[in-house]
């Protein structure tokens, strides 16, 4: 560079503290209302389908309202695994967000998707070893929470 250049060197003025807020202005805004409506409708639809399946088992098979719970969940999970395998569930998820992730179908999808993904590493270490990677936290916190709630209920009963 020429030694006699008097021009001051331009430099970027970026502040780590404020950059994140500045960058937020450029991100397309999520439409919370529309997203919530989509989640509500799809989630409700899935639950509605679940209710229909329950009614089906109660009407045509020897199940009561109480015992129909298990086969209903199993059927819903079967459907979500099928849709995951067909490559459709992720499209539903992109549309519905929590509406398809929260119901038990989302649980089925997380297990199936991970199992499919890790097929290339074999059935033992790949599929079986990885398939609960995403669902694991649901299982852990669900079981622990159920335990604590049951414990609290028992203790309250003793008092």
């Amino acid at each position: 560079m020429a030694g006699n250049q008097v021009k001051e060197r331009k430099s970027l003025s970026l502040d780590k503290g404020t950059y994140s807020k500045k960058a937020d202005q450029y991100k397309p805004k999520k439409n919370i209302w529309w997203n919530s409506l989509k989640a509500f409708l799809v989630g409700g639809l899935i639950c509605g389908i679940g209710q229909a399946i329950s009614n089906f088992y109660i009407t045509f098979f020897d199940f009561t309202e109480r015992t129909a719970g298990n086969p209903t969940v199993a059927t819903l999970i079967f459907i979500s695994v099928l849709l995951t395998g067909f490559g459709v569930y992720d499209n539903i998820g992109q549309f519905a967000g929590a509406g398809s992730a929260v119901p038990v179908t989302g649980f089925g999808n997380s297990v199936a998707a991970t199992a499919i993904e890790h097929r290339s590493e074999g059935y033992v270490l790949g599929v079986a070893g990885n398939m609960f990677k995403l669902a694991g936290s649901v299982i852990v916190f669900g079981v622990v929470a159920a335990f604590i709630v049951a414990l609290v209920k028992k203790l309250l009963f003793l008092i």
Partner: peptide, 12 residues
Amino acid sequence: YPTEYGGQKPPY
């Protein structure tokens, strides 16, 4: 996430 996972990606 796995390719077939139904998580919702943000628009950005």
